[in-house]
Design a protein around this nucleic acid. Structure first.
Lengths: 229, 229
DNA sequence: AACGGGTTTATGTTCAGTCATAACCCGCGC
DNA sequence: GCGCGGGTTATGACTGAACATAAACCCGTT
């Protein structure tokens, strides 16, 4: 019986599922477990740390390790580039720039992401197609104070998303999802009926506490976002 | 200069942001980094493993470690119990069972989650209120082959979600989100106008490849699901 | 009984070293 | 020139040990 940390993880999960260690119960200490598995404490430690990461266990120094009372399941999902999401289905991706202008940041955006009153933004509207069917309408504002290079980018061939991912690697973002009724304008772009329910994602991206960009993504009718855990 | 694994993580991220290690570039090997940081290889290893976990790096044995070319940002967010989500806002939570019946699994569900033709399910409809305002309408089907105990639960005081989390800890699930137009029935429950856009989450839960339950959650008008990474 | 400080203890982190494993690479044989 | 196999090497996993740290707990004082 090889006891790698993965085996230990599996065994702990088994014990939890068999209700030997019900939610809220304390597990034996690392030393004790290491003895019973016949491995080093570090190995048990790694297994348990992983399980904390997965949202299964809770640990506190001295107090010990317990099974999380409520399984606040940690869903974890990747937000791919639109292009990748489309190409993954086998469809042909097409991008189109609809509008592009430089302007002072609108009030709602200044409030939302804490910009100065005189911040200039590049405002873009783009469409993403899958097999020439409307897939996503993207409204985007790029902070020109933070990313001055964007001023000289036409964004006619490359989508702002894709350009930004290359230029501004690994920033923080916050993300929200909602359902809204299509405005007449949106339904024109997305080929939806007026009032159709539209899945919307809104994302703000930050680098060192400075806002980089804000985007509103409107998906085609019937879009489903999927995740698993 | 203390070089804990967190300091190393931070330093690597800094270097990436400063474009010293652009996307796709290979990082120095663990041994080399350990020397330059003046720490053990295991410490560098842990920092790098963490960064893989965060979706920043890609590692392959022998090949080496590289900055992920596209930041397929791993959003990771917790799906809390409705009750907790509501109570976190300071509102008072109220639960109500609307309907409860045992029946053969409907065809669409059998197809969706691979059930036998004669599988019995417990079909439930519940409402969740925040400060007496409709918050979420829940349609749920519990597989009685997998969870026979559910047959004897009235679900009048405790929501099926909460009960299941206690009974069936740490199962796998897949999850999808969509926007739909409210049916007249849904708008009655949710206090929405007919045709209002409704945010819907659909979740299937599995234990050892057997389906446990399937749920459709319809949120109140204007609901926003939030995540960050 | 309430409070405060010291002790104990379980986890957190790091270390140096070993073995395992995957994959690139180079050279041999054809 | 091509394919195959072994050598090299970078990461992956594990060990046993040590020290750090936070917090629970005990105990003595007020």
């Amino acid at each position: 019986m090889r006891t790698g940390y993965q085996d230990i993880k599996a065994d702990i999960l088994d014990k939890i599922r068999q209700n030997l260690w019900p939610p809220g119960a304390y597990l034996p200490g690392e030393i004790e477990l290491a003895q019973s598995y016949g491995c080093a404490r570090a190995t048990v430690n790694r297994a348990m740390r992983d399980l904390v990461d997965d949202g299964v266990l809770e640990r506190k120094r001295k107090a010990g390790t317990r099974v999380k009372a409520v399984a606040s399941q940690n869903a974890r999902f990747a937000i791919p580039l639109v292009r990748e999401e489309i190409e993954a289905t086998g469809a042909t991706y097409r991008y189109a720039l609809v509008e592009r202008q430089t302007r002072a940041a609108p009030g709602w955006l200044r409030a939302r992401v804490q910009l100065d009153a005189d911040t200039q933004v590049l405002e873009l509207r783009c469409m993403h197609f899958a097999d020439n069917q409307p897939f996503q309408l993207e409204d985007r504002w790029i902070n020109l104070d933070t990313i001055p290079d964007a001023r000289h980018q036409s964004f006619e061939a490359i989508s702002p998303n894709e350009w930004l991912v290359r230029e501004v690697p690994f920033s923080k973002a916050d993300l929200s999802f909602a359902a809204i009724n299509a405005t007449p304008e949106m339904s024109d772009f997305l080929g939806a009926a007026p009032q159709d329910a539209v899945f919307m994602a809104e994302r703000s991206t930050w680098m060192d506490h400075r806002n980089v960009t804000h985007a509103r993504l409107y998906f085609h009718r019937g879009y489903r976002m999927m995740a698993q855990f």
